[in-house]
């Protein structure tokens, strides 16, 4: 915490520069996010339809209370947490490994960097088509798995496999972006340290744990926090796999997909309930982020 440290003599003028530097961002945020957010927050206490606002009425906390007895919402919440719990660690670890590979003395660095990054810029349509091709009942993945005695499963159709499919898709397409982030983070570490700690055996791995990981702390904190924020709002993958329905049998229903289906799939729907769900999700993510910040801050006074 800043108060604990002694303030240097130049700190006074910093306040002016501080406000100056954050002003453009804060004005844009106020206009384009906070203002519509206040509007949406008001809606969460109403029964409100955009096309017929004259019929709007306040309903108090009814929308929030309704969420607690909504089984589909609970299911969506469970799915979303499962998704986040798997995707965040896996994508962080793979991104970091890819970054280490590209930062090592490997031959053809540029090729690897481009190859690993390409999934992040491949169109969702191509990715969707490929996954349909790979993961259908007679697809390559099933044929491969059958060599090891697994039964062939219909990934898109089976309620127990559709969510894992979303996870695989998400990880596949997000690790490239994470790799770029960690590559930038690794640049702040002198190359001699990195070379010494290259993954080339147990010793190297230990050095990696003791030297590189602590130095990457701010980047990892960033990756994990934004990873959790992003995955708890997962929409695209669930939408692609289920074609928007959240099926089969709500197994790919996520919170944001549910919000979308409640408020935006039908013309002139009641916006009060989806708005309330959005603020419930907001409260959950906000709490989790505060906890993480505490956790990371505790481990590193210097940041």
């Amino acid at each position: 915490m800043p108060q604990k440290r002694g303030k240097p003599s130049y700190a006074k003028k910093d306040a002016v520069w501080g406000y100056l530097f954050v002003l453009p961002a804060m004005i844009l945020i106020a206009v384009w996010i906070i203002y519509p957010m206040i509007f949406a927050f008001r809606l969460s206490f109403m029964n409100f339809k955009y096309l017929t606002p004259e019929k709007a009425r306040y309903v108090g906390f009814a929308n929030y209370i309704r969420a607690f007895s909504d089984d589909t919402f609970k299911k969506a919440l469970t799915n979303t947490f499962k998704y986040s719990l798997i995707v965040v660690p896996v994508q962080t670890i793979i991104s970091l490994l890819l970054a280490l590979v590209c930062n090592s003395r490997i031959k053809g660095k540029t090729f690897f960097k481009v190859a690993y990054y390409i999934p992040s810029i491949t169109s969702a349509l191509a990715v969707g088509t490929m996954f349909k091709f790979l993961f259908n009942q007679q697809g390559i993945i099933n044929r491969f798995l059958s060599n090891f005695g697994f039964h062939s499963v219909s990934w898109f159709e089976d309620p127990s496999y559709a969510l894992p499919l979303c996870m695989i898709m998400a990880i596949w397409s997000s690790v490239g972006g994470g790799m770029i982030l960690f590559l930038a983070g690794l640049q702040d570490i002198p190359s001699s340290v990195i070379e010494a700690a290259q993954v080339d055996g147990a010793n190297g791995f230990q050095r990696f744990l003791k030297i590189i990981l602590p130095l990457l702390r701010p980047t990892i904190f960033f990756a994990v926090v934004t990873g959790i924020i992003g995955t708890l709002q997962v929409f695209d993958q669930a939408y692609i796999v289920s074609r928007g329905s959240g099926g089969p049998l709500d197994s790919t229903m996520t919170v944001v997909l549910y919000i979308y289906n409640k408020g935006f799939r039908t013309t002139n729907a009641n916006m009060g309930y989806p708005s309330a769900l959005a603020f419930l999700l907001f409260a959950i993510i906000f709490t989790l982020t505060l906890i993480q910040k505490k956790f990371f801050d505790k481990g590193a006074e210097s940041y």
Binding site: A15, A40, Y50, I259, Y260, M271, A278, L281
Partner: peptide
């Protein structure tokens, strides 16, 4: 930089990432 309200503003910057963009679309 040190300035009053920094922590709150930073929490706002973080916080706005947490609201599903869909509900802000129409306004």
């Amino acid at each position: 930089l040190e300035f009053a309200g920094k922590d709150i503003m930073f929490m706002i910057v973080l916080g706005i990432m947490m609201i599903p963009g869909q509900v802000l679309m129409v306004p």
